[in-house]
C-alpha cells in the first residue's frame, strides 16, 4: 500500500461518522486507532466549546456537542490552524436551531469577536485627529469626506438581542425572556486596544456603516439620512454617528 493510500484509509478510520472500517488493521492497530479517533472528536469539540463559550452555555452541553459534531462531520477542518474549525459554525446553527435564531446570532457574535482579537493592528483616529483633519474643510470637502474603519470591524444584521444574551451570560445578569427584536437591527464587533468589543447599532446606523464601508462619501450618507428623516434630522444623525464612531475607536482614517 502506498503512503497516500494508507493515509487516506487512516484518516477515514479516525474521522468517519459511522463505525470505523476495521478490515486490514490488526488488533493492536485498532486499539490505537480508537485513541486517535476519540482524540480527534474531543479536541475539536473542546476547540468549539472554547471559541463559542457563551453559545455553549446558552444551549447546554448535550445540544452544543451534538451541533459541534454535526458541524465537524459536515465541514471537516481544512486549515493549518485549529481556530478555523469554528468558521461557519454559526451557519450550521442556523440550520440546526431554525426556531431559535438567537443561537446562531450569539455564535456569530462570538466568532466575530475571536476574529477581531487577532485582527491586524491599527491606530484608531481620535477626536483630535478628526478635528485636525477637518479643521479647514469647506462644505465641498465635508461632502467628499470618506472614512476608513479599523481592520476586523464586522457588522451583522440580527433579529434578536444576542448582545443582551452575551452580557447576561458573561455578567451573570438576568436572561432575556424573549430575545427577539421588534425590528431587525445590526451588531458591530471591533477591537479597542487588545479587547474585542461590540454594541447593538441604532436604527439606521447599520445601513450608514454599510454605505460608508462601500466607499460612499459623507455627502452620500447625509443624502440617505435626509431622505429618511428630513434635512435637519438627517444631518444631525450623520454627525452623531461619526462622533460616536470616533469615541468608539472604530474610525481608522479620515480622507
Amino acid at each position: 500500500m502506498t503512503l497516500a493510500a494508507l493515509q487516506t484509509r487512516f484518516h477515514g478510520a479516525i474521522t468517519g461518522s459511522g463505525a470505523p472500517d476495521d478490515a486490514g488493521w490488526d488488533e493492536a492497530q485498532r486499539r490505537g486507532l480508537a485513541v486517535y479517533r476519540n482524540a480527534y472528536r474531543m479536541r475539536l469539540v473542546e476547540t468549539l466549546r472554547a471559541s463559542f463559550e457563551k453559545t455553549w452555555s446558552w444551549i447546554g452541553d448535550d445540544s452544543f456537542d451534538t451541533a459541534a459534531i454535526h458541524h465537524l462531520v459536515a465541514h471537516p477542518p481544512a486549515s493549518w490552524t485549529l481556530d478555523e474549525a469554528g468558521r461557519g459554525f454559526a451557519d450550521t446553527l442556523v440550520e440546526l436551531f431554525s426556531g431559535d435564531p438567537e443561537v446562531a446570532e450569539l455564535a456569530a457574535l462570538e466568532w466575530d469577536m475571536s476574529q477581531a482579537f487577532i485582527g491586524a493592528d491599527a491606530a484608531a483616529a481620535s477626536a483630535q485627529d478628526f478635528a485636525v483633519a477637518t479643521a479647514a474643510y469647506t462644505d465641498e470637502d465635508w461632502a467628499a469626506m470618506r472614512l476608513d474603519f479599523v481592520p476586523g470591524l464586522a457588522v451583522r444584521p440580527v433579529a434578536t438581542d444576542c448582545a443582551a444574551i452575551w452580557h447576561a451570560i458573561a455578567d451573570g445578569g438576568p436572561i432575556p425572556s424573549d430575545a427577539s427584536l421588534p425590528a431587525p437591527r445590526a451588531v458591530a464587533v471591533w477591537r479597542r486596544g487588545f479587547q474585542p468589543c461590540f454594541r447593538m447599532l441604532d436604527d439606521d446606523e447599520g445601513e450608514s456603516f454599510a454605505l460608508l464601508r462601500q466607499g460612499a462619501t459623507f455627502g452620500s450618507l447625509c443624502e440617505m439620512l435626509i431622505g429618511l428623516h428630513g434635512a435637519e434630522e438627517g444631518v444631525r444623525r450623520a454627525g452623531s454617528f461619526i462622533t460616536r464612531w470616533i469615541t468608539d475607536e472604530i474610525v481608522a482614517a479620515i480622507y
Binding site: 494508507l6 493515509q7 487516506t8 484518516h11 486517535y36 480527534y40 475539536l44 481544512a78 485549529l82
Partner: peptide
C-alpha cells in the same frame, strides 16, 4: 491530514523507504 483535511493530531508514519 490528507487531501486538504486536517485532523490537528500528530499521526504516525510507517517507517518505510517510500
Amino acid at each position: 491530514g490528507i487531501a486538504g483535511h486536517n485532523t490537528h493530531d500528530l499521526l504516525p508514519l510507517p517507517y518505510s523507504g517510500e
